[in-house]
Design a protein around this nucleic acid. Structure first.
Length: 916
RNA sequence: GGGCGGAUAGCUCAGUUGGAAGAGCGCUGCCCUUACAAGGCAGAGGUCACAGGUUCGAUCCCUGUUCCGCCUACCA
């Protein structure tokens, strides 16, 4: 038999690509509906097709791969369905930027050619992330790769839209929506990010029409919108103002008067002046107040968030001509300053105070969003939300960690209608058509030539373009130019990817999926919508468990971002430390409810772990020659019984932690077992048995060595797929690949509590001998002589049995007979358990000398500490020295004190030993 | 404004029916011992944020305070 050779250090690069190729070629990741196992399925949160793998993906995907590989090994019928998201606005922005660099633009290309261009882009660059996922070792069923704009998925989108429309759950309406003036599209409420800023609160005086000497002072953070005011509101029970209700005020800078209305909902008497201007076209509250009081909506901003041009502005607001000239076309920010000046010039500005406020920004381009009055499509959400709340309440869906359940509930109970139309080109175009003649023809947008379809137009919603108008039979049908929110299609992901609306075997087998693994940031965007739409269209929840993991931040806890330059690139890390190291790091840090602060040193640490495993395998292979005897565990040697018992324990814990989604604890148990039990103790304990060809334990131990290593590789495989496969293939094994082997299951016959107890005694003893060795400064390589005693006679006989192990692990010789303490023999006593270890001090070790050295060292440190204390106590020095010098002194002082404490403890022990 | 989470070793974090404070990294000392120096052994280091309360006993349970995150919200 020839022993296979492994290199001294583990080189991930050569190993990883080789095995991944082999796995996919042999189709291990492909799911079959005819597989006999109980289904276990996960759909991947589809990354943006524009994306490349960042560390957040790496975490998300590593955890899913651990679950999938684990369940696959358990014999389940596993499917991990991969795919990408067309990411409407994000993708459109990417391609638009490209066009801009070429001196072209979306508008000059036109809609059709632009969309072609995006598809072209997708064909060339859209696979980047998929290839990176493979590098991470993800065991996805790549044969089932889906894209949200695939034919099948688009069919599902249309089906859902039409059915929701038929159920009157989709409607078209003119509403105030969040508008991004850069992307030129509507956004849903959750696509707006809020940021606290320091703004100003302006108090403006509006004069009463009938009595101009009486002023009503209103407070606002947005004075520029005052031109669009159509009323002023006061609280109906406010004695300061309620007598004015029904009267009118003159709107400064204009030739308009507006009514004073009473509104208890809008007005908080305590805030500001107690009077509020109402601008229904530019503020969400005011919009609703406008509805209540049947007020006009005067729009003063265009789609770019600039003030209207002069003639439009004059027409809409009746503003003074010179004011119109001064303001026309200005961006809001500039308009605000301008208005401030104008109001002040006209004596209408009472005061300006600083004021904290939240500013809404577009989640894609960070542009400040504007409330904007426009016609959009909405999903009536309450009827969908109710079953989705129940599903979590009654436990059909479990959110892990549970603490997020409240968040989910709160949001779902308070949910608002979902604006689903977007004024962009890349996405699923809304399946609604309008007969142009029946609607009297449409104007076209000057900006991008889209038809401007009024609210009174009658949409024909259908799965495909209608042949002709059902009303007039005409064929001049215009499709609604808007596309659907990206999250509309991803909301169908768990069933659209399985073939819905067709009743496919996949749908039957894998829906509902088992677990959804996702970050918190898309709980509302995505998870909530999947639950609502899954319940509506499949009649069942889309998944049983939702595991929510944390955000990955940098070592300082900052959000990683390209502009900050603190991004850890997983590809770079994989290249440097190996994929397994990265995966294990992420798993080990996935504690629930806490963000992950990732530093490269951590990954380096687990790279070392991989190397440790590698060398343990090398060690095993070195000593494999010779017979192996597969005796029952109970008949094996003490170290064998012990390690098998520990292995069994580890299997139990890893399995139960995985069931609880505690990836961190599962990793830590594996780490602990492999490094500190298997390597540090077991391999050391069995060296004598392996190195002596005639040792009676040889055959049994060789068997245990292989058995334990092989089982451990299977246990670890979901976490570190590459190194485990490489090692597993090299050691004796049965089967083609570790990927499809059974996951280790606990086995009671391996439990050996007597061996574990014995081990504890052994560990204590060896630890004592080693401590004594260091304390006495025994010369390296020199054998140490010792004897061990125990007050308890039964323990004493156990110790007799352990003597050879103690001797071997502490490079010493053991006295088996009762020692006769001579002047050269000293005793260290362990207080607990009555255990004592005696060390025979040989001539070359001079205890007095050791003590002298310690005392000398201590004195020098004492002086150094004194010096530093003096310096730091010196006010002049502290005042003059740069902070880093002071900090350095402090840290030096701290470390000196640590050393001091350590030396003192050594000194104490030595003095006891010497009896001085 | 409301809600949630966190505060434990120098750093990052574990720590569930309350019962003698743990890991990794870093640090100190010794050691290139035949698997591994990406290693081994030994060690130092803690008022478990603060103040009360319950208890024989609190890092853990309760109340309050401070600081830090996150989510959410229309206070103009």
């Amino acid at each position: 038999m020839t022993t296979p050779q492994l290199d001294k250090t583990y080189d991930p690069k050569t190993v990883e690509s080789r095995w991944y190729k082999s796995w996919t070629e042999r189709g291990y990741f492909h799911a079959s509906t005819t597989h006999p196992g109980r289904p276990y399925s996960i759909v991947i949160p589809p990354p943006n097709v524009t994306g490349s793998l960042h560390v957040g993906h790496a975490l998300n995907h590593s955890l899913q791969d651990i679950l999938i590989r684990w369940r696959r090994m358990q014999g389940r019928n596993t499917l991990w369905l991969p795919g990408t998201d067309h990411a409407g606005i994000a993708t459109q922005n990417v391609v638009e930027k490209q066009l801009m660099a070429e001196g072209s633009s979306r508008e000059s290309l036109g809609r059709e050619r632009f969309i072609e261009r995006v598809w072209q882009w997708k064909a060339t660059s859209g696979n980047t992330i998929v290839n990176q996922q493979k590098q991470l070792g993800e065991s996805c069923d790549w044969d089932r790769l889906r894209f949200t704009m695939d034919e099948g998925l688009s069919k599902a989108v249309v089906e859902v839209f039409v059915r929701l429309f038929e159920d009157a759950l989709i409607y078209r309406g003119e509403r105030l929506i969040n508008w991004c003036p850069r992307c030129l599209t509507a956004l849903s409420d959750i696509e707006v990010e809020h940021e606290d800023i320091k703004g100003k609160l302006y108090s403006i005086e509006y004069a009463l029409e009938q009595d101009p000497s009486t002023k009503l002072t209103v407070a606002t953070t947005r004075p520029e919108t005052m031109l669009g005011d159509t009323a002023v509101a006061v609280h109906p029970e406010d004695p300061r103002y309620n007598r004015f209700i029904g009267q009118r005020v003159r709107l400064p800078l204009t030739n308009r008067t507006i009514p004073i209305v009473g509104d208890a909902i809008l007005v908080d008497r305590e805030f500001g002046t107690g009077a509020v201007k109402i601008t229904p076209a530019h503020d969400f509250n005011d919009f609703e107040a406008g509805e209540r009081h049947s007020l006009n909506r005067i729009r003063i901003l265009d789609m770019h968030a600039n003030i209207l041009n002069e003639s439009e502005l004059r027409l809409a607001t009746k503003v003074e001509p010179e004011i119109a000239i001064a303001l026309a076309g200005l961006p809001v920010q500039k308009a605000r300053l301008r208005i401030e000046q104008l109001l002040s010039d006209h004596g209408a500005l009472a005061k300006i105070e600083p004021h904290k406020m939240a500013l809404g920004k577009c989640y894609r381009c960070k542009t400040v969003v504007e409330p904007y009055l426009s016609i959009q499509w909405f999903v009536k959400i309450k009827p969908l939300a109710e079953p989705a709340i129940k599903a979590v309440e009654n436990g059909r869906i479990r959110i892990i960690p549970e603490s997020w359940t409240n968040n989910y509930m709160g949001w779902m109970r308070d949910i608002k209608d979902w604006c689903i139309s977007r004024q962009i080109w890349w996405g699923h175009q809304i399946p609604a058509w309008y007969c142009e003649p029946c609607n009297g023809g449409f104007l076209r947008s000057k900006h991008d030539n889209r038809p401007l379809i009024g609210l009174d137009a009658n949409p024909i919603v259908a799965k495909s373009r209608p042949e002709k108008c059902p009303q007039c039979g005409g064929i001049n049908l215009v499709q609604d130019p808007d596309v659907l929110d990206t999250w509309f299609s991803s909301g169908l992901w768990p069933f659209s990817t399985l073939g819905w609306p067709e009743q496919t075997p996949e749908l039957k087998t894998y829906y509902p999926t088992s677990t959804l693994v996702t970050g918190l940031d898309i709980l509302f965007f995505w998870v909530a919508r999947m639950i609502m739409l899954g319940l509506k269209f499949m009649g069942d929840v889309p998944f049983r468990d939702v595991y929510i993991h944390a955000l990955v931040r940098d070592a300082e806890g900052q959000k990683m971002s390209k502009s900050k330059g603190n991004v850890i690139d997983p590809l770079h890390v994989m290249d440097q430390f190996g994929t397994d190291a990265l995966r294990f790091t992420l798993a080990s840090m996935a504690s629930p409810g806490r963000d992950i602060k990732l530093a490269e040193e951590r990954i380096e640490g687990y790279r070392n772990f991989a190397n440790k495993i590698w060398n343990a395998a090398r060690f095993g292979l070195m000593y494999l020659e010779g017979p192996r005897a597969a005796k029952p565990p109970a008949e094996r040697s003490f170290p064998d019984r012990w390690i098998l018992s520990r292995l069994n324990h580890t299997i139990e814990i890893v399995t139960s932690e995985l069931e609880a989604y505690r990836f961190d604890r599962a990793s830590s148990v594996l780490y602990q077992f492999i490094w500190h039990e298997y390597c540090d103790w077991y391999l050391e304990l069995i060296k004598p048995a392996l190195q002596d060809p005639s040792h009676p334990d040889g055959p049994g131990t060789r068997q245990t060595l292989v058995e334990t290593l092989e089982t451990t590789m299977r246990l670890l495989h979901p976490f570190m797929p590459f190194i485990t496969e490489e090692i597993w293939q090299t050691i004796p094994h049965q089967g083609d690949s570790i990927v499809i082997q059974a996951y280790p299951a606990p086995d009671r016959s391996r439990q050996a509590s007597e061996a574990e107890q014995l081990f504890t005694l052994l560990e204590q003893t060896i630890s004592l001998v080693r401590t004594g060795r260091v304390l006495l400064n025994y010369p390296p390589g020199q054998q140490i002589q010792f004897y061990v005693l125990h007050d308890d006679p039964s323990r004493q006989s156990q110790l007799r049995h352990l003597q050879p192990y103690v001797a071997s692990l502490s490079r010493g010789t053991a006295e088996l007979t009762e020692p006769t303490p001579s002047s050269a023999t000293k005793l260290l006593r362990l207080v607990t358990e009555g255990l004592s270890v005696g060390i025979v001090v040989s001539g070359e070790v001079d205890l007095k000398k050791a003590l002298d050295r310690i005392v000398k060292q201590q004195n020098e440190q004492e002086k150094e500490i004194g010096r530093l204390n003096g310096k730091l106590g010196n006010q002049e020095f502290v005042a003059k020295a740069p902070p880093e010098v002071i900090a350095d002194h402090h840290s030096r002082l701290r470390s000196l004190r640590n050393d001091q404490a350590m030396l003192a403890s050594s000194e104490r022990q030595l003095r006891t030993l010497l009896g001085v």
